[in-house]
């Protein structure tokens, strides 16, 4: 275990040093479409937070706000320390690779936009590709890869700058179950190695329980946070956790909370 990972697991969720906080954030589209109402969330260093909820609950909107892709109508989003280049990375639902560039060139992108030459960061690129198990494919083009492999490249690109915060917007939603399980295991293993904070948007209860230590349940119309659950299981988590009765119980609790969230709004 790396020192970073050790620091992270030594402090229970909620008592870690703060990384970012959203306070009373509203997002309104157009005149009166409330995508997000009064969202407050304190993100601690080393948290793995899932935003879980039905479609239209504002979970993707929240992620876009944190990513700086749109701005809150009111409220604020603050980083505890000033954000520098490479602190933040995103993985979207689509792999979103540049089809004209090789795998290594795609992973180079965050560095390239910082003005760093390929040769200067080659080691980091190879390291990131090794983390996702694709070092042999560095010269391949995206079209030659399967859906799961493309997603791995997308993750390698997000990891390459060793970000403090990684935002993932339903990254595995389009993948088959087997690939998804594999990637869930891998994403936890990668996080053990580089120890970054993750905010993970999903509509899968099972995925959120397996991956995260904090699950934020959200409801739709208007998008808002209903409650937060904590998953006590320590990391590293493996397949053993996935088949444990504890996991089943946690999933049931999350499902019920989600049902409550859906029931909070019956008119659709």
């Amino acid at each position: 275990m790396t020192p970073m990972a050790a620091t992270r697991s030594s402090a229970p969720a909620g008592e870690r040093s703060p990384l970012l906080s959203m306070s009373h954030v509203d997002k309104v589209f157009g005149r009166d479409v409330v995508a997000l109402r009064d969202m407050t969330l304190d993100v601690g260093q080393g948290d793995f937070i899932s935003l879980l909820g039905p479609s239209g609950c504002g979970k993707s909107t929240a992620l876009r706000l944190i990513a700086g892709l749109s701005h809150p109508t009111s409220g604020s989003i603050r980083w505890a320390q000033d954000r520098v280049d490479g602190d933040l990375s995103v993985v979207l639902q689509e792999p979103t690779l540049m089809p004209w560039a090789t795998v290594a060139q795609n992973v180079w992108l965050p560095f390239r936009l910082q003005g760093r030459r390929f040769r200067a960061v080659r080691d980091e690129i190879l390291e990131a590709l090794k983390l996702v198990g694709l070092e042999k494919f560095q010269n391949a083009y995206p079209r030659e890869l399967s859906g799961g492999m493309k997603m791995r490249v997308s993750i390698a690109r997000a990891l390459v700058t060793r970000p403090r915060l990684m935002l993932m917007d339903e990254p595995f939603a389009a993948l088959d179950e087997i690939t998804r399980f594999k990637l869930n295991n891998d994403i936890l293993a990668m996080r053990e190695k580089i120890g970054c904070t993750v905010i993970f948007v999903t509509h899968s209860v099972f995925e959120s329980v397996f991956l995260s230590d904090r699950i934020v349940i959200m409801a739709a119309r208007p998008g808002r946070v209903i409650r937060e659950l904590r998953v006590g299981e320590p990391y590293p988590r493996t397949e053993v956790f996935r088949t444990s009765s504890d996991y089943a119980a946690q999933c049931r609790a999350a499902s019920e909370a989600l049902k409550e969230a859906m029931g909070a709004h019956d008119d659709h």
Binding site: A67, S89, V90, L92, E94, T96, L113, Q114
Partner: peptide
């Protein structure tokens, strides 16, 4: 999506 990505990475 790539446009968004470029924006996040400060292009």
């Amino acid at each position: 999506n790539l446009r968004d990505l470029f924006k996040v990475y400060g292009a």
